[in-house]
């Protein structure tokens, strides 16, 4: 997976209404001749053994197993494909954006949405509205995540996982961006944003951050189904291997235009899950 070379060209001179971008590493260095830049960070972040609390989240799979919506590998495969195409795509876009934003310590040209862009099409698109400091940057991206997660149960699960990830990542990869994020979003940044910033701290590119987000958007649910239904873990890994992760990853610029694919069934599952008497997973 040579995402470094193929999916993460240096971003310069991007269009208006986007967070500022610079080169992907934010620092000069020798050319990445082997394509290995960031890969170790990506492996550590995507590993289910990363001690950041992810093991206790099923991403709706526990409730889907309980209600019978998932009863075997075929249902699980459909569940995971749909999850990746919706929540996974949104998470990947947020992680990309967070990682790219964390590349620049200060954001002189960060723009906040101009609320009335007259006749120019989308009135919610961003337009120049002055400089914003780092705190505004993270709060703005956080608000974009909030607007894409309608279910309070899912917002809570996302923030809880984000808070735990930031706490863990700060000790593994101490960095100013993680400290800023923890300070500016004290209740816990949404998980994909935390993941994007942690990825930056771990030396990853935005494309790698997005890949980690896409991948972890399905692995927790897959593992939960293995535990809950006693599915053959090899069969489930075959399902994971066949998922089209690349298809949900794209370069992102305009935060207001980030993908916002909704999954109404996941919303229902998340809310029902909170109200279910017997729960093994947090979400």
């Amino acid at each position: 997976m040579d995402v470094t070379a193929t999916e993460a060209p240096a971003l310069t001179g991007a269009a208006s209404g986007m967070p500022p971008t610079t080169d992907l590493t934010g620092q000069p260095g020798p050319a990445d001749l082997t394509g290995l830049t960031g890969l170790s960070g990506l492996l550590l972040l995507a590993d289910s053994r990363l001690p950041a609390g992810g093991h206790a989240h099923s991403g709706g799979a526990e409730e889907a197993c309980r209600t019978g919506a998932i009863s075997g590998p075929e249902d699980l495969a459909r569940f995971l494909r749909g999850r990746l195409a919706t929540a996974g795509r949104v998470a990947a876009a947020l992680a990309w954006s967070a990682c790219a934003a964390a590349h620049v310590p200060k954001f002189p040209d960060t723009e906040v949405p101009d609320i009335r862009a007259a006749d120019s099409g989308d009135p919610t698109s961003t337009g120049p509205a002055g400089a914003a400091d780092a705190a505004d940057k993270w709060r703005l991206l956080d608000a974009e995540a909030d607007a894409r997660i309608a279910s309070p149960a899912q917002r809570l699960a996302s923030r809880t996982q984000g808070r735990l990830l930031v706490r863990t990542a700060k000790r593994i990869w101490p960095s100013r961006a993680l400290e800023e994020l923890a300070r500016d979003v004290p209740d816990g940044a949404h998980h994909p944003i935390a993941l994007g910033v942690a990825a930056r701290a771990a030396g990853c590119t935005p494309a790698q951050a997005a890949m980690a987000a896409a991948y972890t958007s399905v692995t927790g649910a897959a593992t939960a189904a293995v535990r809950l239904l006693g599915l053959d873990p090899v069969t489930v890994h075959r399902v994971l291997a066949d998922l089209p992760y690349d298809s949900v990853i794209a370069e992102q610029h305009d935060w207001s235009a980030l993908p916002a694919h909704a999954a109404p069934a996941l919303d229902l599952l998340a809310e029902q899950h909170l109200r279910t008497e017997v729960r093994l997973f947090v979400s």
Partner: peptide
């Protein structure tokens, strides 16, 4: 931003998915 949501119908990955 208050709410941003997209629906895709006719995408083989999402159609019929218990998650969507």
């Amino acid at each position: 931003p208050l709410l941003r949501q997209e629906f895709v119908v006719g995408d083989p990955d999402a159609d019929g998915s218990p998650a969507v």
